[in-house]
Amino acid sequence: MIEILQTGIHTSIQDIGRHHFKHFGVPVSGALDQSAYLIANSLLNNSPKAAVLECCIKGPKLKFHDDFYICLTGAEMNARLNDKILKNYKPYFVKKEDVLSFGIAKSGCRTYLGISGGIKTEKVLGSRSQYKNITSSDKISKNTIIPIGKSNFKPAVGTRVKEQKINYANKKIEVYKGPEFKYLGKDQQNLIEKKIFQISSLNNRMAYQLKEKFTHSLPQIWTSPVIPGTVQCTPDGSLIILMRDSQITGGYPRLLQLTESSIQLISQKTTNSEIRFQILPKII
C-alpha cells in the first residue's frame, strides 16, 4: 500500500483506458502520455494495462507501506526518495516507510509513477482510470491509502532504458486533415499550418483550448463521433484539441486529427506553450 501525504496539483490514477463503454457516452480516459505510461510498466515487468499515478505539473508526496520497485517516466519533476534524487526511466527499490516527493516539472508537465504490481483500486467499467461520476473521485485525495498488487519483479543489473529522446519543447504537432477540413477555403487551409498557436489556460485531461482564434465559415454538422486528438473548431473560431477524458461525440466541425505521438507530445505541454500544426500528406 501507499499513503498519500500531499496530493500535488492534479494527481490521478490512470491506466490504458476505459474502451468498452463508449457507446454509453463514457470517455476513454487513461494516461494522456500513453508512451511514457507503457514504458513505466514495461521497466517494472508489469502488465501493460497496470494502473499508475499520473502527476501533473507538481507531483504528490507519498509514503510506502511495503517494499516495492518504482519507476518514473515522462516529465522531469525533481523526484526525491527521502533525500536521494531519482532519475527517470530507471527502476528503484523502495522500502517500507520511505517517502517519495516531487517538485515542479522542469521539462514536460506529466510524470508517470509506476509501482511493481500496479495500483489495485477497484475497477469500474473495466478500468481504474479516475473520471468524475464514474469513479468516486477524479483525482487522488490526501490521507488516502492506495492498494498495490503483488509482484516478484527484480531488475536485471543496470536496467534503464536510454533516456527517451523526446524533446517536449518541440512545437511541431503532426496532424491529419479532419473530416470537415475540406470545407475550409484554400487560404485558410494554408494558414492553419503557418500560424503559431499558444495553449490557453483552459487545458486539462478533457481538452486543450488554443488562445488564437481561427476565423472560418465552416458549416454546422450533425453530432458525430470524435476521438482523442480531434481538433474541433467552434463557431467563434476557438480551436479545441480533445484529450482522453473528452466526450465521445461532438457537434463542432472536426478540422484536424492529431497523430498518436502528437497526442503524447501535447499532453506534455501546458499553458502558454507554442505549437505549430504540420499536416501529414495522407493517413494510410
Binding site: H19, H20, K22, H23, W222, T223, S224, P225, I227, I248, T249, I283, I284
Partner: peptide
C-alpha cells in the same frame, strides 16, 4: 474493435492499421 454512432455517422475502430481503405 468497436463502433460508435452519431446521427448519420458510424465510427469503426479496427484492431490493426488500415491497409487499404
Amino acid at each position: 474493435e468497436r463502433c460508435v454512432t452519431g446521427y448519420k455517422s458510424l465510427l469503426i475502430e479496427i484492431k490493426n492499421k488500415i491497409k487499404s481503405l
